[in-house]
Amino acid sequence: MRVLQLIDSLEAGGAERVAVNVANGLASRIEQSFLCATRKEGTLKETISKEVEYLFLDKQRTVDFKAVVRLLRYVQSQNIDIIHAHSSSFFLATMVKLLHRKVTIVWHDHYGESEFLDDRPTKILAICSRYFTHSIAVNTSLETWASQRFKGVPTSYVPNFAVQNYATPQTVLEGVTGKRVLHLANLRAQKDHITLIKAFKHVLEACPDWTLHLVGKDFNDAYSASIKSTLKRLELEQSVFIYGSRNDSDAIIKQSSLGVLSSASEGLPIALLEYGLHGLPVVSTQVGDCERLIRNGDTGCLVPSQNEQALAKALILLMKNENLRLSYSKNLNAHIATHFSEEFVFKKLLSIYKRCLS
């Protein structure tokens, strides 16, 4: 079996991490694993296994015929059986399929705004779905949505998973050891950094020695500007730190004592899996499939989204109770090992591939 993971970029986002993790994990499980970044490279390029064959297309526009022809020739020359297209890369995969009917398309839906699926544009996706052999959803809401929208395409829920990151440690976090809160998310409005920052203003009244660390790509856009202006207005620039995109997430998590996710909308976030894999206690908003990972009083604290008071209260509770942090982190780690492990996911994924080719 020869499978190509197709992804738009290698920036440090959730879908991109999954594409790289799947390509790396397949390398020892199938005949040959491939990975293609279509539009842009990024920090995740360094994490691609040497056993994975890598291609960068440098696609310049939505319909780029040179990129289509190059990918087509690559698929044919490498005898690739399956194009596993992540997120919006389904369009390029479909164009290749139209010219090379032998190849099979598996589409992996990472759509993060699961609470707003009625507003999702689907016209092009609906047309391209006719050429999908199977679709994969990262949460149950997306699975239900796809089953209703694309009735001729079998759909499976396959959870995200996290793996150890062996990148060389480079990032040194500010603040006091043992009193750092980590928010691992790109600076997008969906991640709702603003509510988190406002909540942290309340947190500092009870726990003044703690600091908050925002790690994720800074797009230097209007939302990024609003984050920075909020920090300045609330006089939090000595307590909340922005680092941008970093590749050494393992090293960053190891320097942290508490993980937080404040999203207004989610699928099944990689950040929560990474927190749990490395033994961080977690506070998360109750969006998407977060409740599959975080259960109040067992594996962490789950709070309503866009509620700064509830978020602050949960953070303070864990900051002031080390035993509770230890209990939650232990339980979350065990839960992930059982239900969201690499072995569990690849067993399901390989089963899907085999069905597609049979």
Rank of each mutant, 00 (worst) to 15 (best):
R2S: 11
V3C: 08
S9I: 01
E11H: 15
A12I: 14
N21I: 10
V22Y: 08
E31R: 08
E31Q: 10
L35T: 03
C36Q: 00
T38W: 00
R39M: 12
T43D: 10
K45Q: 10
E46L: 09
E46D: 13
E51Q: 13
L55F: 05
F56N: 08
L57Q: 01
R61Y: 08
R61P: 10
T62R: 12
V69E: 13
V69Q: 14
L71V: 00
R73Y: 09
Y74F: 14
Q78R: 11
N79S: 13
D81F: 01
H84C: 03
A85F: 02
F91T: 08
F91A: 11
M95G: 09
L98C: 13
V103D: 05
I105P: 07
V106P: 00
V106M: 02
W107T: 05
H110I: 09
G112W: 03
F116N: 14
L117C: 04
D119F: 11
P121N: 04
S129I: 06
S129R: 10
Y131D: 06
T133N: 12
I136D: 07
S141C: 13
S141Q: 15
E143A: 14
S147K: 13
V153P: 03
P154T: 02
S156V: 00
Y157V: 07
Y157S: 06
F161Q: 07
Q164T: 13
N165G: 01
A167I: 04
P169A: 01
T171S: 09
L173Q: 00
E174C: 10
G178F: 10
H183P: 00
L184W: 06
A185R: 07
A185S: 13
A185G: 08
N186K: 00
Q190N: 04
Q190F: 03
Q190H: 03
D192K: 06
I194V: 11
L196A: 05
I197V: 14
K198L: 11
F200Y: 13
H202T: 15
L204C: 06
E205H: 12
C207Y: 14
D209K: 08
D218N: 15
D221E: 04
Y223V: 06
A225L: 11
S226R: 11
K232A: 15
R233C: 06
S239F: 14
V240D: 03
V240N: 04
F241Y: 11
G244T: 02
S249G: 02
K254I: 00
L261F: 10
Y275N: 00
G276V: 05
H278D: 09
H278M: 07
V282I: 11
T285M: 07
V287E: 04
V287L: 04
G288V: 06
D289P: 05
C290D: 08
C290M: 08
I294N: 02
R295M: 12
G297C: 08
G300Y: 07
C301D: 03
S305N: 12
Q306I: 08
Q306A: 11
K313V: 12
L315I: 06
L315E: 00
L318H: 01
M319K: 07
N321S: 12
L326F: 14
Y328R: 01
K330W: 09
A337F: 04
T338Q: 15
F346G: 00
K347C: 03
K348W: 01
K348F: 01
L350F: 01
S358N: 10
